[in-house]
Design a protein around this nucleic acid. Structure first.
Length: 531
RNA sequence: GGGGAUGUAACUCAAUUGGUUAGAGUAUCUGCCUUUUAAGCAGGAAGUUGUGGGUUCGAGUCCCACCGUCCCCA
């Protein structure tokens, strides 16, 4: 945003700041402010604090003027308190200065704890200091910031003006805290494993690729921590967990962001039945801690997370829904197509086909299936777990199967990981593993239906592209093939076949190439979008 | 990948199915007001209707392309 495009409000506020600085009263010269209380404490401990002088700090969000008395709401992280500025107490000059404060300014305020005539606990202002001025005007004080795109791009403005958004992120933080506490109490050790991996294993997904200059090697941002965590269990750390980011180079929608947060845990000497018990108990206890209830809203109804959750085989669920007795890839496809979204009440879907579970142990009584489950709540996948495959010979075979799938074009198939096989050759005890998507769990427990509502800064296209979207950046023409290639500022690259040289010459001579391309080339020649 | 919706002042929204100079509230500016709390009253300023084309006597509205965002489906 250039300075010349700033509106009147911004120009006035910038000028106000320049004036303050010129007068030797630069708010940004302040380095600290010593608060005596937070706003909420004044409300909670009013009886004890009434009449005392306190020092508070925060952002002024609204002001209500009156000739000789003026009110403002000061918000800090704990809540809001009303400031009262009146002529009697401050004198004319300082009252005037108070009225020059803008909604959005950050101030340190000193005064006496009191009640207004209408009974609201307030601060009778005696002194204040500007700690930062706001140059941008605040969004609508009543409706807040509604524009979804702007809410995500300018999350700071969203958080300033929409308290319910702050609440969601507070809950997210609380969910993670409760999860850590739950696991710590059960002697799980929190660990950190590589986010940059030479082989992107542990899940079926396309990775982001990066490059390490000094080692001159390709690295992948991890799609899962799984194989590293199990190496630690081999090493004797019987219970480990990690809460951190995974990265998957795939599409973006209401349940997918390219980077997302996953909790993975591994417990030696446990199987996937233990993992079901743990999952159920942990999620219930988190729901209780965060919401004070196991009931969560879902559309126009409620889901009760209270135990005990349904446990059903994938094959059985598909049979119930479609009447078909399937296995292998057909079973998975039928499950995804017909069953997933019907699983509203918490359901452990057990026994996945071996084909898409290369890290899970085969069932003893039917090796076409594995000891694996996924947890579905509200029609969405929340977790994934198995009795871990710990037979190095079988694991090597599974990796080979994956390599074959990859050779056939499955670009989500996993790579062969030699070192992981070597680790298993040292002996991995029977182990249960579990992954829970923190973003999805947060969506569930806060009643949000888009993952972008629970991630502070979800990935969006950069906004600069919108500035000059229709400008033509570059063109390439091949006289022999008569192919014209156009690259637009917005990022699109198009190829047109059979464009005669005369047309290309007219194009070059035209006043606006973009306009000419729109009028005389688009739709008149065979078009192919390259990017 | 396919489909639908949407983009108007800094913010929240209008604009009679294509018709005069694009309106209102908030915020801002100028006055008035010593208990307001979405404060109130009076007045003022503020717009390249996402971008570029097209159709038309006339386009915020219809058509095409591009850009962004949201939703649904695969």
């Amino acid at each position: 945003m250039s300075e010349t495009s700033d509106n009147e409000i911004i120009q006035l506020r910038r000028q106000r700041l320049l004036n303050l600085q010129a007068a030797g009263r630069d708010p940004f010269a302040q380095t600290r402010f010593d608060r005596s209380h937070k706003n909420a404490q004044i409300i909670e401990r009013f009886d004890e604090l009434e009449g005392q002088t306190v020092h508070l700090a925060g952002r002024i969000k609204t002001r209500r003027g009156q000739g000789k008395i003026s009110f403002a709401d000061l918000h800090d992280v704990s809540g809001k308190i009303q400031l009262i500025a009146q002529l009697d107490r401050l004198g004319e000059e300082k009252l005037g200065e108070f009225k020059n404060l803008e909604a959005g300014d950050i101030v340190g305020a000193s005064g006496v704890v009191m009640k207004s005539r209408s009974g609201e606990i307030s601060l009778g202002l005696s002194e204040w200091v500007l700690l930062a001025t706001s140059i941008q005007p605040l969004p609508d004080k009543y409706h807040g910031l509604q524009d979804v795109e702007q809410r995500y791009r300018q999350r700071y403005a969203d958080l300033i003006s929409n308290e319910e958004v702050v609440e969601i992120f507070r809950k997210r933080s609380q969910i993670v805290r409760e999860m850590r506490r739950y696991l710590d109490e059960r002697e799980f050790m929190e660990v950190e494993t590589p986010m940059m991996q030479p082989i992107a294993g542990g899940a079926a997904a396309r990775p982001f690729v990066t490059h390490h200059n000094a080692l001159d090697m390709e690295l992948f941002l991890r799609i899962a921590p799984e194989l590293y965590l199990k190496r630690l269990v081999v090493g004797g750390l019987e219970r480990v967990y990690e809460i951190n980011r995974n990265f998957r180079n795939e599409g973006i929608d209401t349940t997918h962001n390219p980077e997302f947060t996953m909790m993975e845990l591994y417990q030696a000497y446990a199987d996937y039945h233990h993992m079901m018990d743990l999952t159920e108990d942990m999620i219930c206890s988190i729901a209780q801690a965060v919401n004070g209830s196991t009931l969560i809203p879902n559309g126009d109804r409620e889901i009760d997370l209270a135990p005990r959750w349904r446990r059903a085989g994938m094959q059985e669920l598909v049979r119930d829904q479609t009447g078909q007795e399937l296995s292998g890839h057909a079973l998975i496809e039928a499950f995804e197509a017909h069953v997933e979204t019907t699983l509203i009440e918490p359901t452990f879907v057990m026994d996945f086909p071996v084909e898409n579970s290369p890290l899970a142990k085969k069932k003893a009584d039917d090796p076409r299936f594995t000891y694996r489950f996924e947890l579905f709540i509200g029609g969405a996948e929340i977790g994934n777990a198995f009795s871990e495959l710990n037979d190095p010979l079988d694991q090597a075979e599974r990796f080979k199967m994956q390599m074959k799938a990859r050779a056939k074009g499955d670009d989500e198939a996993q790579d062969y990981d030699d070192d992981y096989i070597r680790a298993l050759q040292f002996g991995l005890p029977p182990t249960g593993g579990l992954g829970i998507g923190i973003d999805r769990l947060t969506m569930l427990l806060t009643g949000q239906n888009s993952i972008r509502e629970v991630i502070f800064f979800p990935l969006l296209k950069p906004e600069r592209a919108a500035l000059d979207s229709s400008a033509l950046l570059e063109e390439k023409y091949d006289l022999e093939t008569q192919i014209l290639e156009l690259k637009w500022a917005g990022g699109g690259v198009y190829q047109y076949r059979g464009v005669p040289p005369e047309v290309y010459i007219h194009f070059l001579q035209s006043e606006s190439k973009g306009a000419f391309a729109n009028a005389e080339i688009k739709g008149k020649f065979a078009e192919e979008k390259l990017f």
